[in-house]
Simulated assay, not measured.
Amino acid sequence: MNDKYEFCKEVNVRPFAYAISLIDGKWKMHILFWLWKKEVLRYSELKRALGKVTHKMLSNQLKELENDGLIRRREYPQVPPKVEYSLSETGKTLMPVLSAVCHWGTEHIPEDWNI
C-alpha cells in the first residue's frame, strides 16, 4: 500500500518548523520589524507603534521573543521603571529574512491596499 505522504519522509521539516515556532504569533514579526527599524524601543513606544495590540498580548509576545533569544530586555533600576527592548545578536541574524519579506511586499502590494 502506498502512503500518499511518503514524500514527506524525505524532507527534513525540523529547521523550518523551529524557525516558524519562534516567529509564529500575531504580533511577533511586527515587534521584530519595529525593533529592526528603531533599534531600541520602550514598552510604551512599541505599544503605540503596534496600535491595536492589547497589553496582555504585547507582554506575552515580548516574553516569548525574549525567552527564545530573539530580543533583549533591559530594565533600569529607577522610579518609574524604565524598560527597553532591542534585537539580540540572534534576532539580528533574522533581519535578512524580514528584509526579504519587506522587499516582496514592496514588489507586490496592490495600489489600493491600506493597513
Results as ranks from 00 to 15, higher is better:
M1L: 05
M1A: 07
M1T: 04
N2A: 09
N2Y: 07
N2P: 11
N2G: 04
K4G: 02
E6R: 08
E6T: 09
F7I: 03
F7Y: 04
K9C: 02
K9L: 11
K9Y: 02
K9E: 15
N12A: 13
N12F: 02
V13N: 10
V13G: 06
R14E: 15
R14N: 14
P15A: 01
F16V: 12
A17C: 09
Y18G: 03
A19N: 12
A19F: 04
I20M: 14
I20D: 15
S21C: 07
L22I: 11
D24E: 15
D24P: 04
D24I: 06
G25W: 09
G25C: 08
K26V: 11
K28R: 15
K28E: 12
M29I: 10
M29E: 12
H30R: 13
H30T: 05
L32K: 01
F33D: 13
F33W: 04
L35W: 01
L35G: 02
L35S: 03
L35C: 02
W36K: 14
W36C: 06
K38M: 08
K38Q: 12
E39Q: 14
L41T: 00
L41Q: 09
R42S: 08
S44M: 04
L46P: 00
L46H: 00
K47T: 00
K47S: 10
L50F: 01
L50W: 05
K52R: 15
K52M: 09
V53A: 09
V53Q: 12
V53E: 12
K56Y: 00
L58F: 02
L58K: 11
L58T: 07
N60I: 04
N60C: 06
Q61V: 02
K63E: 15
E64G: 08
L65H: 01
L65M: 05
L65R: 04
E66V: 05
D68E: 13
D68N: 14
D68M: 10
G69A: 06
G69N: 07
R72M: 13
R73K: 14
R74N: 13
E75D: 11
E75S: 09
Y76M: 09
Y76A: 05
Q78A: 05
Q78Y: 08
Q78M: 13
V79F: 15
V79A: 11
V79L: 11
P80S: 03
P80N: 01
P80L: 01
P80Q: 01
P80E: 03
P80R: 01
P80G: 02
P81F: 06
P81N: 06
Y85S: 03
S86P: 03
S86T: 11
S88F: 00
S88I: 03
T90Q: 09
T90K: 15
G91S: 08
K92W: 10
T93I: 06
L94S: 07
L94G: 08
M95A: 03
M95L: 10
P96E: 05
P96L: 02
V97T: 14
V97C: 14
V97E: 11
L98W: 00
A100T: 08
A100P: 12
V101D: 09
V101C: 14
C102W: 02
C102Y: 01
H103S: 14
H103N: 14
G105E: 15
E107S: 11
I109H: 13
P110Y: 10
P110H: 10
P110N: 07
P110G: 01
E111K: 14
E111S: 13
E111C: 05
D112V: 06
D112G: 08
W113L: 13
N114T: 13
N114G: 05
N114Y: 12
I115T: 11
